[in-house]
Design a protein around this nucleic acid. Structure first.
Lengths: 342, 342
DNA sequence: CTGAAAGCGCTTACAG
DNA sequence: CTGAAAGCGCTTACAG
C-alpha cells in the first residue's frame, strides 16, 4: 500500500526478452552488453516506467549512497550554507543526504546514531561537534567520518575547518590598523574549541602588535545575541571603555551593536565592531557589519567530497584541510581618529 | 569496506542456538516466542553487538520508514521551525527524515523526486510548493503526500496550512483598531498563493471595515528585504503616504522598517508596521515587530503525523487542517494619534 | 556477449 | 512455540 506496485527488473527483462542479469547490465553497465540488447532493454524500461529499486540495490551492493550530516541546529544562520555545500557535492556524486539536528544534546543524536549503526547511511559529516557520536573516536574511527569546523574528535578523524586563530588575527589587525588600541573581545561559549581559539588568537595578536591585554576587555557572549548585548553593556561601563570590539560571531556583533545604540553611541563613529562568519544577520543591521568571511559553501563541498572519497576507499585524500578566511570591510568599523573627534 | 563487518541475525541465531526465524521474532515481535528464548536471543544480540540491518528490513517489508521533506530553502528563517516539528513527530514514530532543498527550481527537485520513484522513501511533505513534483497531482496522488502552507497541488492532496486571509485580517484589524485609516500593504511574490490570499485578505478587511482601498498603497516586496525597502520608499513618496503598513512577512517588514529609519521617520511614532510569521529577524530589529504568529512547530508535527498515517494506511485522517494564527503585539505599532502629535 | 545461480539480511506465511 | 523455506529486487562472479 505504501509503495505503489512498480515494475521490477524482471518485468523489464521479460519485456525485452532477455535475462534479468542482462537487463541489469544494460541499465547499470551498458558497456557490457551488445548495442541491440542495450536499446531493447532501455526501450522496455522506458515503456513500463521502470525505476531501479534503490533499497534492493543497497542491500546487494552493501552501499546506501547516503550520507548523514549532523548539525547543531538550523536556526543559526551559519549552517544553511554549509548544508547546501554538502548537498551540492553529494548530489553531484549520486549521494543523498540525511540531515540531523543534534541541538548539541546527546539524546537528539540517538535516532541518527542508529542510522549509522543500522547500515542505512555510509558515513557521517559532523558539523561543529558538541555531540559525541559513538564509534567515531578511538584509534581508528569505525565508520567513515569527517568533522567540520570544531574538531571534537581530534586529529584521528578527517577534518575540514578554518584557522580560528587567523579569524581573530584578521579582525584584530584590521582594528589595530585603523588606530584602535583598546580592543575588546566578546567570545563564544568556551565549550566550543573554535571559541577558545578565537580568544587565543585575539590575545596572541594583541601581543604580536605590542598592544596591552586587559582581562576586563574580555567578556563571554555565548555566541548568542542577548548575552552579547549584556557583555557590551559591561564593556561600556568600564572606566576606560574600549573603542573597538571583536565579536566571535556576527550574531553577537548584532547584540553588541544594539547595546551601543541603546546607549546613544554611534557605530562606527564611537565604537568599531567586527563580527565573524559573514552571516545574514550581520548584513541587515545598520550599519552592516565588518566581518570575517568563512566560506561555508566551499567548506561543505569539501567535507562531502572527502567523506564520499573515504566511503569509496579512495586513497591519497587530504586528511585535514584548512580553508582560508578573509576580512570583509563594511560599515561598522572606522578609524580610531573619528572617536577623538566625536 | 564502506560498511563495517557487522554481525547478522544468523550470527545471533547461532549464538542463541535457535533459527533465524525465531531470532527475528524474539527481537522484533517478542510476544511470539517463549520467555526463555526471548532472553537467550537478546543476550546473544547484546553480546555480539547486533543491530538490525534497516536496508534488508526495508526491502523485505516494502517500507523504508523514511519520509522526504521538500523545502524551498533553509535560509529563510521561517522554515527551520517547520522542519524541527516534522522531525520531532517523525522520530517519535520511528521514521527518519530526508530534507531536500528545492530552491523553487525544478532541477533541484530531481535528486529528491528520484528518491520517491526509486522506493527509498515512503512519502513526501512538500513545504510551500513552488515546485511541481511529478505524480503528486492527478485525480489521486500516486504517493502518500502532504502539502504544507501553500496548497500548490490543490484539494486533492492532503494539507496542513493557515488561513492566509485571516493572517491579513488580524493585521489590518489591529492597525485599524489603533485608529489608522491609510493602511498600506507590501505583498509577497504573487506566484505564491499565500501572498495572493494575504493581499485579498487585506483588501477584504479594509472593505469590511469601511476603509477605502487605494491601489497606490499596495506594493510588491517579493517576500525579500531589499525589494520591500524600495516598496516602502515608494509609499513614503506618495502625496498622501500611509500611516501604517502590513507586510506579508517579517523579512519584508524589516526592510520597510529600515526604509522608514533611513528617511528619519520613527517607528511606531510616525509609521506603524506589522509583519507576519513571527520569525527571528523580526525580533532583533529596533523596535521589534508586531507580527502574526504562525505556529511552525505545530504545523510541522501535524504534517508529519498526517503523512505517516497515510503511509500506514490509517483511515479517518483529517484531509485538510487549518491551524489558527494569532496577533503578537510588539513595539512597531502604536495608536494613530501619536502620528498627529509628531 | 549472455544466462543461471547465488546471495545481500531480513520477515512471514506455512507446517508442525 | 519453533523451524524450513520462500522471497523482497537487485548485482555479480562463474560458465559458456
Amino acid at each position: 500500500m505504501s509503495i505503489a506496485n512498480r515494475p521490477t527488473l524482471s518485468d523489464v527483462a521479460k519485456l525485452a526478452g532477455v535475462s534479468v542479469a542482462t537487463a541489469s547490465r544494460a541499465l547499470s553497465n551498458p558497456d557490457l552488453v551488445a548495442e541491440g540488447t542495450r536499446h531493447a532493454v532501455r526501450d522496455a524500461a522506458q515503456s513500463c516506467g521502470y525505476k531501479v529499486n534503490l533499497v534492493a540495490r543497497s542491500l546487494r551492493m552493501q552501499r546506501t549512497n547516503t550520507i548523514l550530516v549532523l548539525t547543531p541546529c538550523i536556526d543559526n544562520p551559519f549552517y544553511p550554507g554549509l548544508l547546501r555545500g554538502i548537498e551540492d557535492a553529494a548530489h553531484d556524486r549520486g549521494f543523498s543526504v540525511i540531515v540531523g539536528f543534534t541541538l548539541k544534546r546527546p539524546e537528539s543524536c540517538q535516532p541518527y546514531s542508529d542510522l549509522l549503526s543500522n547500515g542505512r547511511v555510509d558515513g557521517v559529516v559532523v558539523i561543529d561537534g558538541g555531540t559525541n557520536m559513538q564509534g567515531l573516536t578511538g584509534p581508528r574511527p569505525s565508520v567513515p567520518a569527517v568533522q567540520v569546523l570544531d574538531m571534537i574528535y581530534g586529529p584521528a578523524v578527517s577534518a575540514v575547518r578554518v584557522d580560528d586563530h587567523q579569524v581573530a588575527e584578521l579582525a584584530v589587525r584590521h582594528l589595530a590598523g585603523l588606530g584602535h588600541r583598546r580592543i575588546a573581545h566578546i567570545s563564544g561559549a568556551q565549550e566550543s574549541i573554535a571559541a577558545v581559539h578565537r580568544r587565543e588568537g585575539y590575545l596572541n595578536t594583541l601581543a604580536a602588535l605590542g598592544l596591552p591585554a586587559d582581562e576586563r576587555l574580555i567578556e563571554c557572549g555565548f555566541y548568542r545575541r542577548e548575552p552579547a548585548a549584556e557583555a557590551m553593556q559591561k564593556l561600556l561601563s568600564l572606566g576606560m571603555p574600549p573603542t573597538a570590539v571583536f565579536c566571535a560571531n556576527d550574531t553577537m556583533a548584532t547584540g553588541a551593536l544594539r547595546a551601543c545604540q541603546d546607549r546613544g553611541l554611534r557605530v562606527p563613529d564611537h565604537m568599531s565592531i567586527v563580527g565573524a562568519g559573514n552571516t545574514f544577520d550581520g548584513e541587515i543591521t545598520e550599519p552592516p557589519l565588518t566581518t570575517i568571511h568563512v566560506p561555508r559553501h566551499d567548506i561543505g563541498m569539501l567535507a562531502a567530497e572527502r567523506l564520499i572519497g573515504l566511503i569509496k576507499g579512495q586513497g591519497s585524500m587530504p586528511h585535514d584541510t584548512v580553508v582560508p578566511v578573509e576580512l570583509m570591510t563594511r560599515g561598522s568599523t572606522s578609524s580610531a581618529r573619528a572617536i577623538a573627534a566625536a
